[in-house]
Amino acid sequence: MAQVTVTIAGQSYRITCAAGEEAHLERLAASYDSKIEEMRAAFGEIGDMRLHVMAAMTQADELHETRRRLAAVEAELGRLRSSSGDERARMIEARLAEGVHKTAERIEFLVRSLNAAGQGQGT
């Protein structure tokens, strides 16, 4: 296992991760730190814990919305698969599959971001 030190809201956290994931974890921490700074700019100095909670809730909301959109795309893909086998339907299916893939990547990014934030609090 590898370790990486990240800084979030001015605090350093040492986090264990899989070998090769260090840069990814650093990007996630930077994203979360940016979200906290965004909250700080919007709401002022309301306390670090509140800023962390608000940033985490914002990212959780983004994850929820992404999952909802993914479910809608998967449902549409299912309807297309069952309705027609013509070339146009296959092209639409390919585009939807690409959208599902991109949405899944976004969900994974958000989950890792939330997990990293949770790990950073306990380390």
Rank of each mutant, 00 (worst) to 15 (best):
V73Q: 15
L70K: 09
A42Y: 04
K102H: 12
E37G: 11
R40E: 07
L70V: 12
A89F: 07
L70S: 10
A89E: 07
E98A: 14
A71C: 01
E98C: 05
H24R: 15
V4E: 13
A23Q: 15
E108A: 14
Q121R: 06
A18D: 08
Q59L: 14
R69K: 09
S34T: 07
L51F: 02
C17S: 01
Y13H: 15
R40Q: 08
G20Y: 11
S31C: 07
R112I: 00
M1Q: 03
D48F: 00
G120N: 03
A97I: 06
Y32N: 03
E26H: 06
L110A: 03
L77W: 02
A30V: 02
E62D: 12
R95Q: 11
A29F: 00
E45S: 13
R14T: 15
R68P: 01
A117T: 04
A30P: 03
H101C: 07
K102I: 08
Q121E: 13
F43T: 08
E45V: 02
A116D: 08
F109C: 04
A60I: 00
T58S: 11
G44A: 01
G99Q: 11
E37R: 14
M49W: 12
A72C: 01
A23I: 07
E74T: 11
A75Q: 12
R95D: 15
L77N: 09
G78A: 14
M54H: 09
I92G: 01
S12T: 13
S34M: 08
A19P: 05
M54V: 05
Y32A: 03
I36S: 06
G78L: 07
H52V: 01
T5F: 00
E26V: 09
I15F: 07
A72W: 02
G122F: 13
G85F: 04
T7R: 08
S84E: 11
V73F: 12
A72Q: 09
V6A: 06
L63D: 01
A55Y: 06
G99K: 15
D61L: 06
L96R: 15
A94F: 06
E105G: 07
Q59P: 00
N115Y: 10
A104Q: 14
H101P: 00
T7Q: 09
G118H: 08
A75V: 06
A9D: 10
E93S: 05
V6W: 05
T103W: 02
A71W: 07
A72H: 04
A117E: 10
R81N: 05
Y32H: 04
A104F: 02
A41I: 06
I92Q: 15
E26S: 13
S31F: 10
M54F: 14
L63P: 02
L28G: 06
D86G: 03
H64R: 14
E87F: 02
H52D: 04
H64L: 06
G118V: 03
S113K: 10
A117Y: 02
N115R: 12
G99I: 04
L77D: 05
T58E: 11
A30I: 01
Q121P: 00
A60K: 01
E87H: 04
V111L: 08
E45G: 00
A41T: 10
R40Y: 10
A89C: 01
R69A: 13
A9W: 03
R112Y: 07
T58P: 00
R88V: 05
V100D: 10
R79V: 13
R50E: 15
A117S: 09
S84Q: 02
A30T: 06
M91E: 13
M57S: 08
C17N: 05
